[in-house]
């Protein structure tokens, strides 16, 4: 129960600060914290594959956001004051109270099916997984062409 509470408060607070903070780099760091807490949350829900996948994808996402935040934003001097940060902390704790009260009542469903992840992924959703690979390949090629075309023009 204590672990759940800490995870829920950490999740809501870091998500809130990812939006609330003015400095892009700190916002991205807050997003990284949120993704790590979310991964731990998935571990606590007995979903280790989802947790590892979330952590792996989250690392890539944060790296992209961090690079974009560093290169695209200028240091304009707008910073979040300590008073605003404390206000944000109080607001995020208030936001997480309904979640804490809600998680107390969580119960497992009586119905239970026993698919393993490999069965679910490769026997039930095989076409989806293969199509997903094609989608990712297409998107990667699209990004390469987009940036290449732009570089050629400049």
């Amino acid at each position: 129960m204590l672990l759940e509470t800490v995870l829920v408060v950490g999740l809501v607070a870091s998500a809130f600060f990812a939006i609330y903070l003015e400095e892009t780099v700190y916002a991205v760091l807050s997003l990284a914290t949120m993704l790590i807490v979310l991964s731990t949350f998935y571990f606590s829900l007995n979903a280790p594959f989802a947790a590892i996948f979330q952590l792996a994808i989250g690392t890539g996402t944060v790296a992209i956001f961090f690079l974009a935040g560093e290169t695209l934003t200028t240091k304009s001097g707008t910073t979040t004051s300590l008073k605003k940060k404390l206000l944000g902390l109080v607001a995020s704790i208030l936001l997480s109270i309904p979640c804490i009260l809600g998680t107390e009542q969580t119960k497992t469903f009586a119905r239970s099916t026993s698919f393993s992840l490999s069965t679910a992924l490769w026997e039930l959703r095989a076409i989806d997984a293969i199509a997903q690979g094609l989608v990712i390949l297409t998107i990667a090629l699209g990004i390469v062409f987009l940036l290449k075309e732009e570089r050629r023009r400049s």
């Binding site: 979903a47 594959f49 989802a50 996948f53 969580t106 119960k107 497992t108 469903f109 119905r111 239970s112 099916t113 026993s114 698919f115 393993s116 992840l117 069965t119 679910a120 992924l121 039930l124 959703r125």
Partner: peptide, 12 residues
């Protein structure tokens, strides 16, 4: 909650 891995697959 349903002790099922299909949801993890969809999430992935």
């Amino acid at each position: 909650l349903m002790n099922d891995s299909l949801g993890q697959t969809f999430m992935i």
